[in-house]
Design a protein around this nucleic acid. Structure first.
Lengths: 261, 261
DNA sequence: TGTACATCAGTGAACGCGCGTTCACTGATGTAC
DNA sequence: TGTACATCAGTGAACGCGCGTTCACTGATGTAC
């Protein structure tokens, strides 16, 4: 790696860092190449050696943000001991999402807030964007791989999917089989998606100020909500008993069965 | 009402309409007084007779949007026959939220998307902002007023609230008692809040493009999700039986008991 | 090891643009007697 | 019913600002022989 290449990588990093700082001050629409160049002590036209346009810089920030929250969630899940029940992995993932969002509110807003009008997210963002949903759904594979869900232990009724939803979920399940390491039953996948929306709905409301004056420090509400959410997804009621009755069973499974249906 | 006053009201309306159209084209940050004045065939400085600044115009749009979705939801609930179970009112409210959001995506983004940096929502917005959550929670009052929840019919376990959450919910419940027409038990209130976040999480993900390439027409997913959501909030499992067993009982209650605990 | 040439990073000036807001003004609409 | 004055809506010019992007350029870093 030549000195030139090292300098280029370093400056690219500095440009994005400065842009992130500016994001925090003025938001995505206020992000200005001239301001970035000013902070870096360069002339504004110099930035065009690194990013062909303002939108490309924005895209880089979006990809970085998706990757950052994605790897944070993946790490949080990986940090849970293999013997721990699926439930613990889900809870860890939820907490990781919230923690990252609170630590990087403006990057969170960039990727999960209202889309910037006039900006069309390019193809390259969809891979990184899928990391969090994949990470959330992957633990469910362990339930599916178990052959059957702990039907006897669950007290939560499971209304059947409508025909249209069943087909849609089956198609999605097949399409993402590679990403999540196996085909999920439609019902389980739908529960996972609902949990995904619930999780981000709660985090967004907290960050965007909808809880102002009511559930303002949302810690207790969040903890309660993700407990209920885990009940809903997994179909156990460990929120009551404190420990999943099926945990022992699941723990005996290999943590990572081979991919493919 | 003098001719002058009528003209003023009319033009104020036209300015806001033009601004809403522009919102759809360029978003909140792109909203420009000069563009509005251009569309109206006026000189830009003339707008200052109607709104003292750009931010005040934005505030007016935000209040209008909150009022619009608020009254839409209220109407949807009111349109449900009095004899219908609480469940039907909840579902109607959820569908109304989604329909309005899809018909007014940019106004939705204005109030539920990422906050505009540098813009601080003034006090006048909090009343209108509360209309939807109040409308969602108000039907739950009927459950609370019934004296007890249909405990026997519910199959969903109800883990207790943590101490901190219980206190917070009790405080919030007391603070909003006037708005919802009665004090709600903390547990019921928390379920309502969780449902609120779930509902808007799902609508936001649909509108902001997170379902792209997966659950893209989200109709079936949404219908399923709100069914589960009603199960969760009300504790009945009408999604399975098709009709709430407690519906008859609740229908005998007065639709609007006097406010206050 | 040294020279000749190509590649690339950064400069500085310029283009053309749109923005929010102020201000002194004209003329029409409303009000008091 | 008519006049004198006050209020208000809309004009047009101007201020000062920051922006994205282009372009011909200089000088440093890399590469081939």
């Amino acid at each position: 790696m030549t000195a030139r290449e090292r300098a280029r990588a370093e400056l690219t990093r500095e440009i994005k860092e400065s842009a992130r700082r500016q994001l925090a001050r003025v938001g995505a629409d206020g992000l200005s190449l001239r301001a970035v160049s000013r902070e870096l002590g360069m002339v504004s036209s110099a930035l065009y050696r690194y990013f062909p346009s303002r939108d490309d810089l924005l895209t880089a920030l979006i990809i970085d943000a998706y990757d950052a929250i994605g790897s944070t969630v993946e790490s949080a899940i990986a940090a849970v001991p293999d013997e721990a029940p699926v439930r613990e992995r889900l809870l860890a993932a939820c907490r990781a999402v919230r923690t990252w969002a609170r630590e990087h509110p403006h990057e969170y807003a960039l990727i999960y807030g209202s889309p910037v009008p006039g900006y069309r997210a390019p193809q390259e963002t969809i891979g990184p964007a899928a990391r969090v949903p994949f990470a959330l759904i992957r633990p469910l594979r362990d339930i599916a791989a178990h052959g059957q869900e702990p039907e006897a232990d669950t007290a939560i009724p499971r209304p059947p999917l409508s025909g249209a939803l069943g087909e849609q979920a089956a198609a999605v399940g097949a399409a993402i089989a590679d990403g999540v390491g196996g085909t999920l039953p439609p019902d389980l996948l739908v529960r996972g998606v609902i949990a995904w929306t619930q999780l981000f709905g709660m985090v967004s409301f907290e960050l965007f100020g909808q809880f102002a004056n009511t559930f303002d420090p949302a810690d207790a509400l969040f903890e309660h909500a993700i407990t209920r959410l885990a009940d809903f997804v997994i179909g156990e009621s460990a929120g009551v008993t404190g420990q999943s009755p099926a945990a022992g069973q699941l723990a005996d499974l290999p943590a990572d069965p081979p991919a493919g249906s």
